[in-house]
Amino acid sequence: MPKTERFIETVTALARIGAGLSFAVLIGAVLLQVIGRSLGNSPVWTEELTRFALLFLIAFGAGLSLRSGDMVNVDIVCEALPGRWPWRLRLLSALATGGMALYLLPHAWRFVSIGRMQSSPALGLKMSYVHVTVFLMLALLVLFAALRVLGMLTGTEDGTPEKAEDI
């Protein structure tokens, strides 16, 4: 297996693990909330934890959805065009997504650094641990968009969404 494919599989697996762990924490916190409310006393920190877990789920899942093609697409318009136009538009889309996310990365990092001066009310976490989700989401979008562009330019992929059986 070439190093590039191994790298892509590793990054994809780590993002899936991150999304899975975030979802597990979300499920656990909501379950604890429901059980606590049924018994009359729900821990107050579960509200915050569910929001934070959802942010991490989105951060890990955005790049994965770009990779798999589960993001909103206009395939019906794009794929109806003649010749290489669909390929060109998929490449342009990946470049635009990656470029926009790359542009926003330093601003997201400033947002993370502001969080060092704040803490969450119920859990007492430094908000930089929560704000890093924005940076993580953008970084993964840059990475997965760059991998798509690289794959398209080298001919190892055509930029179309992965099939369900490939995932």
Rank of each mutant, 00 (worst) to 15 (best):
R84M: 12
V25H: 03
L91F: 14
T12S: 10
T156N: 07
V72H: 07
F52V: 12
G18P: 01
G115Y: 01
L95V: 15
T154A: 05
S68D: 14
F56A: 14
L89T: 06
F111S: 04
V72E: 10
L54A: 12
R90V: 12
R110V: 14
M137Y: 04
G28H: 03
M127L: 15
L49Y: 02
E47C: 10
R148W: 03
T97H: 06
W85N: 10
V74I: 14
S93A: 15
V142Q: 03
A62D: 05
L150W: 13
M117H: 15
F111W: 15
S42Y: 02
G151D: 06
A94W: 00
F144M: 08
A96H: 06
F135S: 07
L81D: 03
A29N: 02
D158T: 11
A139C: 05
L57P: 01
I35H: 00
L54W: 14
L64Q: 11
Y129D: 01
A96C: 03
G36P: 11
N41P: 01
G155H: 05
R148H: 05
A24T: 10
T133Q: 00
G124Q: 03
Q118V: 03
G124A: 01
S42P: 09
L143E: 05
L123Y: 00
G40Q: 10
L49M: 13
R51W: 11
T154Y: 08
A139K: 04
L54G: 03
E48Y: 11
H107E: 14
V74T: 09
V74G: 11
L81T: 04
L136V: 13
I76C: 07
L49F: 04
G61H: 07
I76G: 12
L55I: 06
R116T: 09
A108T: 08
W85F: 11
G61M: 13
A13H: 08
S128Y: 10
S128V: 03
L54R: 05
N73W: 10
L125I: 15
S68C: 07
V30W: 10
I76D: 15
C78A: 14
T133M: 00
T50L: 10
A101M: 11
W85M: 14
S42W: 04
V30P: 02
T46S: 04
L55E: 09
I17A: 15
W85S: 13
L104K: 06
S42E: 10
G83Q: 12
F56Y: 15
V142I: 09
L140R: 01
S22W: 12
L125E: 08
L57N: 09
E48L: 10
T133R: 00
A139V: 05
G124N: 01
S93K: 08
T50N: 11
I17N: 05
V142P: 00
A80M: 09
V142Y: 01
S120A: 12
A139E: 03
G28M: 09
F60K: 04
W45A: 15
P86I: 08
R88D: 06
G151T: 05
Q33F: 05
F144N: 00
A19T: 04
